[in-house]
């Protein structure tokens, strides 16, 4: 084959290669959300994207404390945690519980901002509790997943995932709003 034909053949192979690579990237990452998971543990700081998270613990009960206890058909779970950002004031886009089967549990409706994620600043930590509602068979395999950025499929992102040890109690659970912590406290 002449040099010109080699060049054409090389370009054709390159075009096919780039197209194939684009298809793989689109199929594996862009179409389903391109993200990396950072794994943490309770009691330690973990940085996932632009959020720093510190999980203190999780408690489950079948009622929430209010003027009259609010019962659940399943279990309420409150996660005691602190978090701050790394760059600017922001609220996590989404915080969910995930069980071993991949089921995701979000903040339950009907509670307004009670037990929902709050605003935090760069190295300005807040501590409070997040509220979830789960079926009983999920209690033993829950992880907290903090998605700091909007899960945009066009840009890669990072999430923090912390496995929880959930303690059950017969007492109705109390939900605490996020409050500012003194520097370096968690």
């Amino acid at each position: 084959m002449t040099r010109a034909r080699w060049a054409v053949a090389t370009m054709a192979v390159a075009a096919l290669g780039v197209g194939g690579l684009a298809n793989v990237v689109d199929d594996r990452y862009l179409a389903s959300g391109w993200h990396t998971t950072v794994h943490g543990v309770e009691g330690e700081d973990v940085v996932g994207g632009t959020f720093q998270v510190h999980v203190h613990g999780a408690t489950a009960a079948q009622a929430l404390a209010d003027d009259e206890p609010v019962p659940s058909a399943g279990w309420y779970v409150v996660v005691d945690l602190s978090y701050a950002t790394t760059d600017e004031w922001s609220t996590p886009e989404e915080v969910v519980l995930v069980d071993r089967d991949g089921r995701e549990f979000t903040h339950p409706g009907g509670f307004g901002s009670t037990g929902a994620p709050w605003l935090a600043g760069p190295d300005i930590w807040f501590r409070g509790t997040l509220l979830f509602e789960v079926p009983e068979d999920a209690l033993e395999s829950l992880s907290l997943v903090v998605r700091g950025e909007r899960p945009r499929p066009i840009l890669p992102g990072t999430v923090a995932r912390v496995p929880l040890t959930v303690t059950t109690t017969a007492e109705p659970l109390v939900v605490e709003r996020g409050s500012l912590l003194p520097r370096r406290e968690r």
């Binding site: 002449t2 010109a4 034909r5 060049a7 054409v8 370009m11 054709a12 075009a15 780039v18 684009a22």
Partner: peptide
């Protein structure tokens, strides 16, 4: 040889334009 060079250049330009547009 002249026709080969033209073909090569056209193919290269088409490839670059195609990838750029994509």
């Amino acid at each position: 040889p002249e026709r080969s060079r033209v073909t090569t250049v056209v193919a290269a330009v088409a490839l670059v334009l195609g990838l750029g547009a994509w």
